[in-house]
């Protein structure tokens, strides 16, 4: 599972993890029933306090995306809630809204804005 932490995002680390795992599930990179690493292993891998990862897992359980089976580990739920993709879309729309208002305030023309958005999309072509 490829997760990254970006201190420049302004979002708390646990929330960054929640959103990345949400996106991985929505896009099918993590599939229903798949086992995810333990929060302690992920903590070592990401070099963050394991409580932070635990908090992200708890939130994902609350959202109905992950489930913990005692003694077995943490898994993506078998039956995903219908609105997984919807939640990811909402988060993206919020981000775009922020970026758009920065672009407007910075005096960018609409054409420049769409070009920049397109560049950002292409930059992410090769993960």
């Amino acid at each position: 599972m490829l997760l990254t932490i970006n201190p420049n995002l302004g979002d708390p680390i646990y929330l960054q993890l929640v959103r990345q795992i949400q996106e991985a599930i929505a896009s099918g990179r993590l599939t229903a029933g798949e086992r995810v690493p333990s929060h302690r292993d992920l903590a070592v891998q990401l070099t963050v306090n394991s409580l932070t990862v635990k908090r992200a897992f708890d939130e994902l359980e609350r959202l109905g995306l992950l489930t913990t089976r005692r003694g077995l580990g943490t898994f993506v739920v078998e039956t995903l809630p219908a609105d997984v993709r919807h939640d990811v879309r909402t988060a993206i729309i919020n981000d775009l809204g922020r970026a758009a208002s920065a672009a407007r305030n910075g005096g960018l023309a609409r054409g420049e804005w769409t070009t920049l958005a397109d560049h950002a999309w292409k930059d992410k072509d090769t993960p």
Partner: peptide, 10 residues
């Protein structure tokens, strides 16, 4: 260095 601290915490 952080990794050592995190493993100790774990």
């Amino acid at each position: 260095v952080l990794g050592i601290i995190i493993e100790l915490l774990n």
